[in-house]
Nucleic acid binder design. Structure first.
Lengths: 256, 256
DNA sequence: CGGCAAGTTGAGCCAGGTCAACTCCGGTGG
DNA sequence: CCACCGGAGTTGACCTGGCTCAACTTGCCG
């Protein structure tokens, strides 16, 4: 009697059937207790999880899609500070008065609001579950750190290259042919990388002109030259220096 | 027999005598077990904790000073991706092959390399300790997220203003007279905020010209106008628009 | 007191932001 | 089936905040 009465909603949820997600680590009993008091739901692109909800349900598991954490400045400038995807557990307990941003879905997404008290009991009692959720939090912290490093010192193209790698690492299924799915829109991408949609567009084209990637559909790109892309992402000047297809002197010729 | 044989090294360590740091949450026995197998040490500015050390001692508590996590790009550009200060517990377990940066001290600092196995046992057995270290990790993740939001969309002055607030929140003793200690050097500050030392300098002067802060010593500033500084940090254009004390037309006059 | 690293100041330049016009695409209704 | 619409993405032209480089001053430590 390992799984006494698993609800169908759980049996079909990636938090359970992905082997290294939270619910997969639980005993049948724990899973039942948790699912009894938790609230799975769906979000459409643009929907936000409001403050009242996050106060009552500070622990949110992402089952599919992409959910962003957004910060807003006084004058309307917006930033996407973090992206959460399948398997991430967002823990907002005791964030309390600390000013934190809004959670906004960037695509159709599935979430599960986990009952905080049950969650806490489980984590205290089940070392595997603790380990997993801890690991996930560490991963989030590392990602945030890497991301701020990327944003602060890299040029537009380098950021974009890094982002492509981030997507390829995080995408659920490994697709072998070098294609990478970009799970968010251009304008969201721009906000996440701290640049303008126009610049994102230009950078994609630069990369295409240099035959490093091919933009198949808006949300699917193919990497043609992995090594070069890696060099750019790592900030190798030799790789990105080649950017201008046309050398300077063309300008000089024109003005002469 | 609450504290059977606390070593003097522990009695004098902020991880123990700061009430809400890790070692303060341990039973006498736990503290002894941990301190028996742990290694406190001192770092001078510029010293780095090398890979071999972090592999053997992936858990490091900061007892004083400032330790940074630095990322390096191929062409030598350097970024400070995170700052750790007194009370922070750096957990590098299973970061493993994931490319992560170097840990470098930015000032004289004290650290304690905690024995990972003992640490793990304690965390599993002692809910208070678990809670504290968890909270610290969440704090680190939040800080990293906030920081990347700051860096990506704010202007130089706004970043600096935010940083001043970050310092004032994190400084150990609350100094009431509105003075804030900047615990790191200008060039490190620049790297942390993703800007140039020259720009940092100019921004400090702008803020001084506008009477918002006073730079008392290189590492101590006084906030004169908290509200204005807050507005700038939050990206209020009205506040930062006032930047130029001298309006443009002075230039025109000159050239006329 | 000398020497070096850190910080500051000034001048010029460029990557990327801004603004505006245009294209592309999916959905909707006649 | 096509005409229409609105939002997303792209393209071009221009402008500027902050980077760069170089010279200078300051402050710290032996």
């Amino acid at each position: 009697m390992d799984h006494p009465v698993i609800k169908t909603q759980c049996a079909e949820c990636s938090l359970f059937y992905d082997n290294d997600n939270f619910c997969a680590k639980l005993s049948g009993q724990e899973l039942c207790d948790l699912s009894d008091k938790s609230r799975p739901s769906k979000l459409k692109r643009g929907e936000t999880i409001d403050r009242i909800t996050t106060e009552k349900w500070p622990i949110i598991g992402i089952t599919s899609g992409v959910v962003s954490l957004q910060h807003l400045l006084e004058d309307g400038r917006k930033t996407i500070a973090a992206l959460f995807m399948r398997g991430d557990i967002i823990d907002l307990r005791s964030v309390g008065k600390r000013h934190h941003g809004k959670l906004v879905a960037l695509s159709k997404s599935g979430i599960c609001r986990l009952a905080p008290d049950v969650f806490e009991d489980i984590v205290a009692a089940n070392p595997k579950a603790l380990h997993l959720v801890w690991e996930n939090l560490r991963e989030q912290a590392l990602r945030a750190t890497d991301h701020s490093a990327d944003i602060s010192k890299k040029h537009a193209q380098e950021k974009l290259a890094s982002f492509i790698f981030e997507c390829s690492h995080r995408q659920s299924e490994d697709i072998k042919d070098g294609s990478v799915k970009i799970p968010i829109r251009r304008c969201d991408l721009a906000e996440y990388l701290g640049m303008q949609p126009e610049t994102v567009s230009r950078c994609f084209h630069d990369l295409e002109d240099r035959k490093i990637v091919r933009v198949q559909k808006l949300n699917t790109i193919i990497i043609n030259n992995l090594a070069a892309l890696r060099r750019i992402a790592n900030g190798d000047k030799d790789a990105s220096g080649v950017r201008e297809t046309k050398p300077r002197n063309i300008q000089v010729l024109k003005s002469a």
